[in-house]
Each structure stands twice: as structure tokens, then as C-alpha cells.
Design a protein around this nucleic acid. Structure first.
Length: 726
RNA sequence: GGGCGAUUAGCUCAGGUGGUUAGAGCGUCACAUUGACAUUGUGAAGGCCAGAGGUUCAAGUCCUCUAUCGCCCACCA
């Protein structure tokens, strides 16, 4: 017997097992084209830090599915990846710069600063990418590294550019001045999804807007008196009887004294406060819409850094909270502040820095999802799920998916950061006409005005614009035939919290660009929570470092702990005790093997032994269990599958069968008949061990392979390549 | 303001289309074990399956309502 068996199972051999798999070429899909393809594209972990336990859940589930598919004789491809994670990474990198006592704005001031900054972040991500990939390997991921893809690979960028061009040619992207969510710390616009909402205790101020002709006044409630200089109208509901005489009259802006109209608009809520709303198109999305409808001007009073500008009279130069106090002071002096009351409401904040989002008007690139895009991009995505071409697990997430798509708004895809894929557009210096140039070269002559001088767009794409193309962007670039063979992919496995950010966009852009759905099944796992069911986050300090767990208890133990009790879409709480339990199971399995191998080696050649009818029944029971596990796997009931396999191996094989065979195995001075029974017992236990190793391998790849490598008799060079033939 | 999920053993959670005495891990208690394994074994205690109605021969499972917790979405300033 292998001398290693004299010791408890030692998980430190995991690394060498991984090397064995990798060098054996087992991660590449089978080249046999008659086999059914199976493909998972790995949700690319960010190349800006370490893996957290949420990644570990995904990687474990994806690996389990891939190993299972591979053993079931499919051409299994699990394609690994890394994400440049535009804004996310830039935020991480800016913190680094802050520590160095500088900032991105300082770097950008330097000659060639933009390129320099890009280079530095690029180097930073390359470093982290290596680190991150090492961690993925430690978890046992059997992905094909030869096809590893980075979201900034030049050929990926080409694919993204082609999609942008197609959208542009189809009139589905446009550039427009619109209200966008502006983060004044990060100096970029964000999409709707990147805005978080926080409850904030503020004050509601009732301000008097006197009628121009001196006859009476309107009382208008606002939380933002500092923007009054930007007011261009007061709006009331057309059906509001209180104000029917006021429509069309003029009132005086209480700060600037300008004469502004009273307009009627259905968007005004009659029941809120006084039912009269001040219109500040430059700094409020609703006001912008109303302003547009009534052809009102926009007066910007706040700059990009969150300071009042020269349109803001005596408030100029102040930050917003100071300006608010000052505005109140002035209004009080003028006797135009009617009353103030405390008011709790939701305010949008930057999801990264929690700074209050400033609605600003900026020229940005949008994907049209409400007009032509509704029919061409959104509806096909809804239809694919409605028809069942794409299955979402768990089912209830479908409703959430539909609701979001049905209420979607145009998608702002431009970001004012350097870290990302540049938007491939040039603007004519003389007429501002834009031209999409996906080859990266400036046009020679403007098609509109024949100008010859061009300015390159400096904005980059929202990361999700490119990752929304991920299934085809990867497979179209990893090699000849990959796209044809593996697209649509089998499963998209990810956490439910990026259903909108990512999954919905992949469905939309996948169908739009390729004409085919990007994947057949979406499996959404739950979020890992701490003991108090809080979401784990660095700032709360409650994160579990999955790699620390791997060091301590082995990847197999962590994997089992993450799979068992984890049902789709439901959050999972993990504890160290649970992990220990499965570490114990690794050792149990190791000892089962040790016992069986010891006895097999005591006897003669296994081929010559005949299995008795009684033992054959034991084998058949095992096969039934294995079939059951396979069934559970096919139905995405991974927790049940793992638990069934676990239960069989520990409580049937070890506790019952091995115990029952001990008498005959240890018996000496056997009759000739007993010799046959003993030989049968050895043989059947060995068969059961082998089946158990196969059955457990998708869940616990390392310990099962470690044992397989030490078997006295094995068919394949590695367990990973064994067949799960029932 | 809409929507979703959860509520099952002391703790953390499983319980496909309703069908025998409701399961697992950890924890607790008793006992055992010098030959696979103390990272063990055998056994035990512990559950009006959140509450109230309803459908059914039969409900943890299906329907309605209520309560509590958590989450998501939303342009009432």
C-alpha cells in the first residue's frame, strides 16, 4: 500500500494534483466532434484584487458542472476570464494614488498623463490578474487556461467595436445632452444601476414666488433652495383647480428676480406639498423632461466638482451644503421663506463613495432601449425567456428580469474615466459631427462639412457594455470553430445581484448581435452572508477569505461547504464548523480507501474474483445512488446531489457495508467456499470505492484524485478523465 | 408606492409534480472503541413545519389573509 495512507489525508498535495491535471491537458475540451458540447463562460473576476467567498461559490459550482459534464462524455469547455472592471478598478487604483499623496487629476495634468495613467493601471491589473488566477486554481477550477480571455484583449475590443458600429448604423446608439447621474468625487457619469438610494433626513423649504404683477404669490416646496438661481419656471398640474388661473402667468424667481412662467404639466403631483413645483432643468431629471416639453432654458448653477458656479449669484464658489444655508438666509431676509419642515426622503448616491449624485446635463452616448431599441433589443430578450429558450433558475427571478426589462430606460454607456475601452468616435472640430471609426484612425474629411480637423472622444465605455457581449466576445476570439461549437453556451452561472447589470444585457446584446441567445440556462446562486446574515464586505470587516480556508482545511472542504445547503437564488450562510465537517469527510474518504486498498492488496488479482449475487446487489444499489446523483445534477439540484453522494459514502459504504464485510475480510483459515466469499467482498468493495470516487469527484476533486492516483489498479491516468457511465 | 424571498430541531439550513413514523451538518447527552478513521462508531433527547382560514381521502408542500425579518425596484420636488 502507498505509504501516504499511513497518515491522515493531507490537503497540501492539492497543488501538485492541479499540476497533474493541467499538464495532462485534461482541461481542454475533448476533440471528438461527435460528442455533445458543453460550455460555461466564467464570469470574469475583477483583475483588481483578491477573490472573495462569493467568487468561490461561483467557481465551485461552475467547476462541479464542468467536471460532471466532462465525465459524462461531453466536450466540456469552461472558459476562464478576467475583467478590467473599468470604474471599479479605477476606484481601487485611485485609492492607491491617494495613499501616494496624488490623484488621477494630478497625473492627468502631466504631459501624456492620460496614456501614463492607463499604462499604470494596465500594469496593476496584469499583476493582480496573475494573483487572481492563482487563486482560481487553488479552488480546483478545471478551466481551459489556453483560452483565457481578458476584457481588454485587442481582439475582444474589436468585437465590441463592431457591435458599437452595428448599433450606430442601426440608429440604436446616439449622443445627446441629457440629465445624467454625476459623481463629483469620481468625476464621471454613472448608469441608473450604479446609483444607490439612501434615506436622508433633510428639510423641505416652502418658498414664496411672487407674481410678476404683484398680485399674490405661489408657495413652492423644495429640498434644494441652492438651485433656485437655475429655476426657469414653476409647474402645476393642468387639472389642479387651485392653480387654474395661474397657468401662463409670470412669477419672480425669489433669488435672481428673473421673471419666469407658470406652466402646466401632468408630471406634477398635486398631492405633494403645495402642488407647485419649481423647475430646474439643469439639476433634476424630471425638471429636465418638463423643461424640454415647454421649451424652457437650462441654467446650470453647479459645476462638475459640486461647487456653485457664476450663475449662482452670491452663492458662487460655495459647496452645495454651504450654498443651501446661504440661500435660506437670503430668502429669510427677503421674507420669502414661508416655512421649513423636516423631511425624510431617498437620495441617490454613488454606489462606490456614497457621495450624493448630482443630476447634470452632459453629452453622453446612450443605447436606445425605449424607442426603436425597445423592439429591436429589449423585446427579443423578453421573448427568449418567455418562450423558454432561456431558462432562469430559480424561476421566480424571471419576474424580476421581466419587470426590469419592461421598465428599462436608455442606457448611458459613456464614462469619463481613463480605464476602459475608448469609445471609437471622432468629432469634426468645425461642425461637431461625430464619426464612428473602429479602426482607431481619425477620418480624413468630415462627411458633413468637409472639415479636416478632428477631436478624439475621450470617454470610455461602461464596463457592462463590453461584458454584456462576453459570451460571443470570448468565443469569437479564442480559436477557430469555438463560436460555432460552443455558442450558445450551456449555462451562465452567476450571482443574482448582477441579473440586471450583466445577465439581462448579455441576453439583449447577444441576441441583437449574433441573432442567437447567448446561453440556454441561467443559474443564479445566492450571496454568501456572515453569521448575522449580513452581506460580506470589506468595509464591514466580515469577509471570509476563501483562500485562507483552503490553506487551513483544503479546497474540497470549502467546496462542499459552499454547495451543500446552497439552493439557487437563496443566500447561504457559511461557518467554520461546517467547513470542518467536510474536512472530516475528506479524511473519512481517505480512510475508506486505505481500508479497502489494504484488503485488496492482501488478496489475489481482482479480475479472477467472482462477485457473489449478494455482493452484486450492493453494487447495484451503489449504481442507483449514482444515477440519482446524476439526475439531481441534471436538474441543477446541486445541494441535494452532493448530500446524496456524501450520505452514501459515509453512512452506507463506510458505516454499513464495510462494517458488514469485516468478519469475512479478517477471517483466517477459510474454507474453499469462504475464500470465494472473501474474494468477492474485496472485489465489490473496490468497485464501490471506484464508483464513489467518480461520484464525489465533481464536488471534491482533490481528495478523490489523490486516492485514485494511489489505486493499485486504474483504467485512466487520472480520475478527472474517468467516465461517469450511468 | 410596487415587487420578491424567508419563517421547519438549540444553531445553520435541505425538504422536484401534496402520499408511510419531517431530514442533514454542527451542538447536547449516554455508551463504545488497543487493527481503516477520535477528523471514529452505536444510540438518545430535541420539531402544534410563523399564525389564521380554505381546497383535498391526505397539506411543511397548493390557495387566501395576517405578522415578523431581509432584499430588489421606483423621476413626490
Amino acid at each position: 500500500m502507498h505509504e501516504d495512507f499511513l497518515q491522515p489525508y493531507n490537503h497540501s498535495q492539492e497543488k501538485s494534483i492541479y499540476t497533474l491535471w493541467e499538464e495532462g491537458g485534461f482541461f481542454a475540451p475533448d476533440s471528438d466532434e461527435t460528442k455533445e458540447p458543453f460550455c460555461i463562460i466564467m464570469p470574469p473576476p475583477n483583475a483588481n484584487g483578491s477573490l472573495h467567498v462569493g467568487h468561490a461559490v461561483g467557481i465551485t459550482i461552475e467547476d462541479m458542472m464542468t467536471r460532471f459534464a466532462r465525465m459524462r462524455g461531453k466536450r466540456a469547455l469552461w472558459l476562464p476570464a478576467a475583467d478590467h472592471a473599468g470604474f471599479e478598478t479605477q476606484v481601487v487604483f485611485e485609492k492607491k494614488l491617494e495613499k501616494e499623496g496624488t490623484s488621477r487629476f494630478e497625473v492627468l495634468k502631466e504631459e501624456g498623463g492620460r496614456e501614463k495613467l492607463y499604462e499604470r493601471i494596465f500594469a496593476f491589473t496584469q499583476e493582480n490578474k496573475k494573483h487572481m488566477e492563482g487563486q482560481v486554481q487553488e479552488l480546483g477550477a478545471s478551466c481551459d487556461w489556453s483560452r483565457s480571455t481578458f476584457t481588454l484583449d485587442p481582439d475582444v475590443i474589436e468585437v465590441v467595436y463592431r457591435t458599437f458600429q452595428k448599433l450606430y448604423d442601426d440608429g440604436l446608439v446616439y449622443r445627446d445632452k441629457r440629465t445624467v447621474h454625476w459623481c463629483s468625487k469620481h468625476q464621471t457619469a454613472l448608469s441608473d444601476l450604479e446609483v444607490s438610494w439612501e434615506e436622508k433626513d433633510d428639510e423641505l423649504f416652502y418658498v414664496t414666488y411672487r407674481c410678476e404683477d404683484g398680485e399674490g404669490s405661489l408657495s413652492v416646496a423644495t429640498t434644494r433652495p441652492e438651485t433656485i438661481y437655475g429655476d426657469v419656471a414653476v409647474a402645476v398640474h393642468p387639472d389642479d383647480p387651485r392653480y387654474s388661473n395661474w397657468i401662463g402667468k409670470k412669477v419672480l424667481n425669489p433669488l435672481s428676480g428673473e421673471s419666469i412662467p407658470v406652466v402646466a404639466d401632468e408630471a406634477v403631483e398635486q398631492s405633494f406639498a403645495t402642488g407647485a413645483l419649481k423647475i430646474t432643468p439643469a439639476h433634476d431629471a424630471l425638471d429636465f423632461e418638463i423643461g424640454k416639453r415647454h421649451h424652457l432654458a437650462t441654467i446650470e448653477t453647479i459645476d462638475f466638482f459640486g461647487k456653485m458656479n457664476s450663475n449662482a449669484g452670491e452663492l458662487e464658489g460655495m459647496n452645495i451644503s454651504d450654498a443651501r444655508k446661504k440661500a435660506i438666509e437670503i430668502l429669510e431676509e427677503k421674507g420669502l421663506l414661508e416655512k421649513r419642515e423636516s423631511y425624510t426622503h431617498q437620495v441617490g448616491v454613488c454606489y462606490k463613495c456614497r457621495r450624493v449624485i448630482e443630476p447634470m446635463i452632459l453629452s453622453q452616448w446612450f443605447v436606445d432601449l425605449t424607442d426603436k431599441g425597445k423592439e429591436k433589443i429589449v423585446q427579443p430578450a423578453i421573448d427568449a425567456v418567455t418562450r423558454g429558450d432561456i431558462t432562469i433558475i430559480p424561476d421566480f427571478q424571471k419576474k424580476i428580469f421581466f419587470h426590469w426589462l419592461e421598465n428599462i430606460r436608455d442606457w448611458n454607456i459613456s464614462r469619463q474615466i481613463v480605464w476602459g475601452i475608448p469609445i471609437p468616435v471622432y468629432y469634426c472640430e468645425s461642425c461637431e459631427k461625430e464619426e464612428v471609426c473602429i479602426d482607431g484612425k481619425a477620418p480624413s474629411v468630415c462627411k458633413k462639412c468637409s472639415g479636416t480637423s478632428f477631436r478624439k472622444e475621450t470617454d470610455v465605455f461602461d464596463t457592462w457594455f463590453s461584458s454584456g457581449q462576453w459570451p460571443f466576445a470570448t468565443l469569437q476570439t479564442t480559436g477557430e470553430g469555438d463560436f460555432d461549437t460552443f455558442y450558445p453556451t450551456s449555462v451562465m452561472e452567476t450571482a443574482y445581484d448582477i441579473l440586471f447589470f450583466w445577465v439581462a444585457r448579455m441576453v439583449m446584446l447577444g441576441i441583437y448581435t449574433t441573432g442567437k441567445i447567448p446561453f440556454k440556462t441561467v443559474y443564479l446562486h445566492g450571496l454568501v452572508r456572515d453569521k448575522d446574515k449580513k452581506k460580506m464586505s470589506k468595509s464591514k470587516g466580515n469577509v471570509i477569505d476563501p483562500l485562507g480556508i483552503v490553506d487551513q482545511y483544503g479546497a474540497d472542504a470549502l467546496r462542499m461547504a459552499l454547495i451543500v445547503g446552497n439552493s439557487p437564488g437563496q443566500d447561504v450562510v457559511i461557518s467554520e464548523e461546517k467547513i470542518k465537517g467536510y474536512r472530516n469527510f475528506s479524511n473519512k474518504l481517505w480512510n475508506i480507501a486505505r481500508f479497502i486498498i489494504t484488503h485488496v492488496e492482501k488478496g489475489g488479482a481482482l479480475e479472477e474474483s467472482v462477485v457473489t449475487d449478494e455482493d452484486r446487489v450492493l453494487y447495484e444499489t451503489c449504481i442507483k445512488t449514482k444515477q440519482r446523483v446524476a439526475e439531481q445534477m441534471d436538474q441543477y439540484r446541486f445541494s441535494q446531489a452532493a448530500e446524496d453522494a456524501y450520505h452514501y459514502v459515509w453512512h452506507v459504504l463506510a458505516d454499513e457495508l464495510i462494517e458488514a464485510k469485516k468478519d469475512i475480510l479478517f477471517k483466517e483459515d477459510l474454507s474453499s467456499e469462504e475464500l470465494l466469499v472473501q474474494a468477492s467482498a474485496r472485489k465489490v468493495l473496490f468497485m464501490l470505492l471506484l464508483e464513489s470516487l467518480v461520484m464525489l469527484h465533481p464536488f471534491m476533486p482533490f481528495v478523490t484524485e489523490a486516492i485514485y492516483q494511489r489505486l493499485p489498479d486504474k483504467k485512466k491516468s487520472a480520475l478527472i478523465a474517468e467516465e461517469w457511465y450511468v
